Simulated assay, not measured.
Amino acid sequence: MSLLTMAGCTGTDGFAPIAEPTSATVASSSSPSAEAQPLLARYGLAGKSTVEVIDQLDRLDLQQRPADLKASVRAGELLISDGGQEFSLPIPADRFYLSASPYLQQTHDCFFHAPTGCKGELAGKQVQVRILNDADGTVLVDESRTTFANGFVGFWLPRNITGTLRITSDGKTAESKISTGADAPTCLTTLRLV
């Protein structure tokens, strides 16, 4: 049995996401391996792609979060563990998941987003989001969203770009440079609305 190192985002409930497992099952496609399916089935995630697993976990009401399921989104994989088994679920090679949490008064440090643990200040808040690719000015996102119950809003972006993310809510705005490379953070918690 391998051990997981705890690191990254810690929410107000004291949860910390998992870091690199010393051994994990890694599949070459963007679908979780057969070995991961029993673990996923216990949480109603069997048969889902890694993208669908991340989307579903990030959108859970806080009371629905499984206490024993740890999840950590990396640039190319989702690491999951139930305390006994851990698996690496591959993210499609051309996609990157960025989860952003705008705030007014309180935030936390985070690098790898933990959809079963991260908690932001502004849950259920209407926000206007615009994300530009800095290389060519392409608008990647320009839409109104409502932050999830965990106070975050997530975006599937192209891999290996740099860009600018702007969030506006109630006349206040936050802006940040972003990147979607192999060493980029998947959790953005520095978006103070002013």
Rank of each mutant, 00 (worst) to 15 (best):
D61C: 00
L193T: 12
A182F: 09
T173W: 02
E121F: 11
T25Y: 05
A114N: 14
T107G: 01
T22A: 10
L69F: 10
L3K: 15
D170K: 06
R59G: 14
G171F: 05
S33V: 05
D170V: 05
G47H: 08
S176Q: 12
P158L: 12
S169E: 00
L57Q: 04
E77G: 00
P32R: 07
T168K: 11
T107A: 13
T164F: 02
C9T: 09
Q128I: 06
S30W: 15
D136V: 10
A19C: 08
D94F: 05
R65D: 01
P92L: 07
D58I: 00
A67K: 14
F152C: 00
Q37T: 11
L57R: 04
D61L: 08
T173E: 01
M1V: 13
A34V: 15
L79D: 03
T22M: 08
P32A: 13
Q105V: 04
T180D: 04
T25H: 03
L122M: 15
A27F: 07
Q37D: 15
D68Q: 13
A7E: 09
G44I: 02
N150S: 15
I54P: 00
G124H: 05
D136K: 12
D136W: 12
A174N: 03
L193F: 13
L78E: 12
L191Q: 08
A184F: 06
S179V: 01
P17T: 09
L188E: 15
M1I: 11
L69H: 09
K119N: 13
T190C: 02
D136Q: 12
P102M: 07
T147L: 07
L165E: 02
A19H: 11
Q37M: 13
I178N: 01
Q126F: 02
A16H: 00
S81T: 15
I178E: 02
I178T: 03
C187G: 11
P66H: 10
P38I: 15
S99W: 14
T22S: 10
D136E: 12
D58H: 06
F112N: 14
I91F: 14
R42K: 15
L62I: 13
F152H: 13
S2M: 07
C9M: 06
H108G: 00
F87K: 00
P102K: 05
G163F: 03
S2N: 14
G11I: 09
F111G: 01
T107W: 07
K70D: 07
P17D: 10
E143F: 01
L104W: 07
L4M: 11
L45Q: 09
K70W: 12
R65W: 01
D142A: 02
T173S: 14
L157G: 12
P92F: 03
T146E: 08
K177I: 04
P185S: 06
Q85W: 12
T10D: 03
L69R: 08
D55H: 05
S144D: 03
C110F: 08
K119P: 02
G181C: 01
F96N: 00
G14V: 11
A7K: 10
M1Q: 10
R95L: 15
E77P: 00
G117T: 04
S169N: 07
